[in-house]
């Protein structure tokens, strides 16, 4: 009897790990394969054998950095992502505070923000192009920063608001009694208390901006302002797909995201789930 239960337990445990391993393989493998392939030669990539063990080459990386100016694109992508993140934070922080504490705009504001999230990018591409031409912003990184603000601000507002909602009003009342001005309360009290919310929002804004492809392709075609995803797309040439550089640039683009998911997992989970649980 006792033995039987134990055997059952061992079998269950075994099955459990099999399923877990299957899950890991299915979801990690494509990413792993990108990284592996970036270290292969072209011939190894389109080989009809599965090559797991090979002599790695950095030829693909060498190529994208020397003949394709990827150091420049890396700087551009970083500038756009960091710039957008800072501006989104600076504008969303006070606004979400106001929305949380005074219910500014009420439900209609929330609904409005939701609608702006679903505006199809394909339909607003042309208006943006014309506005940017008029403002003389085409082929500048500012154009991309503005577009990415548009794509991220409403999400940031909702996210930050729900974090600030969780900070009890009583703490603030106490500070107010002691004569702290609104500005002092915002900077010295709410800012540290909402820290995890701010980090979460910033990570998301950063990643989404880092990933943006469509607008970057149209608004910044010039070499000096090109961003990484567009540059990766450039290896799909008129007559062939250069898989080696595609994988190398893909790895380069995915790297910061990989690092973020490993080191600040907590915040990412929070950001992804808070919208749904709310």
């Amino acid at each position: 009897m006792h033995n039987n239960a134990r055997r059952k337990k061992i079998i269950l445990r075994f099955l459990f790990y099999i399923v877990i391993i299957a899950v890991v393989v299915v979801w990690a493998f494509p990413i792993l394969w990108i990284i592996l392939s970036s270290l292969k030669t072209d011939r190894q990539i389109i080989s009809q054998n599965l090559i797991f063990i090979f002599k790695p080459t950095i030829k693909n990386y060498y190529q994208i950095f020397t003949s394709h100016n990827f150091n420049r694109f890396l700087v551009n992508s970083t500038l756009v992502a960091v710039g957008t993140t800072i501006i989104v934070f600076l504008s969303a922080f006070p606004a979400s505070y106001s929305m949380s504490r005074y219910n500014t705009g009420g439900d209609s504001m929330n609904l409005g923000i939701l609608v702006t999230r679903i505006a199809p990018p394909a339909a607003v591409l042309m208006p943006f192009f014309i506005i940017f031409k008029y403002l003389n912003l085409l082929n500048t990184l500012w154009a991309l920063i503005l577009v990415n603000i548009s794509l991220n601000l409403s999400f940031a507002l909702l996210l930050l608001k729900s974090f600030i909602d969780e900070i009890p009003v009583s703490i603030e009342e106490a500070a107010k009694m002691e004569g702290a001005s609104l500005f002092q309360r915002l900077v010295l009290l709410i800012f540290p208390l909402a820290r995890s919310g701010i980090i979460t929002t910033s990570i998301f804004t950063f990643i989404f901006t880092w990933n943006e492809y469509l607008f970057a392709m149209v608004f910044c075609s010039s070499q000096k302002v090109k961003t990484l995803p567009v540059a990766a797309g450039d290896f799909v040439t008129a007559y062939a797909i250069e898989w080696g550089p595609v994988f190398a640039s893909g790895t380069l683009i995915l790297l910061p995201i990989l690092v973020l998911t490993f080191f600040v997992q907590k915040y990412i989970v929070k950001g992804l789930t808070i919208g749904a649980v709310k």
Binding site: S222, Q223, V230, V236
Partner: peptide, 25 residues
Amino acid sequence: VVFNEQGRLGYFTNVTTQLVGGTDA
């Protein structure tokens, strides 16, 4: 002479948008 090269993905979209939108770049 300065070249701005782009991949095949979305190239024609870009050309049309650039020209119709009136770029001088």
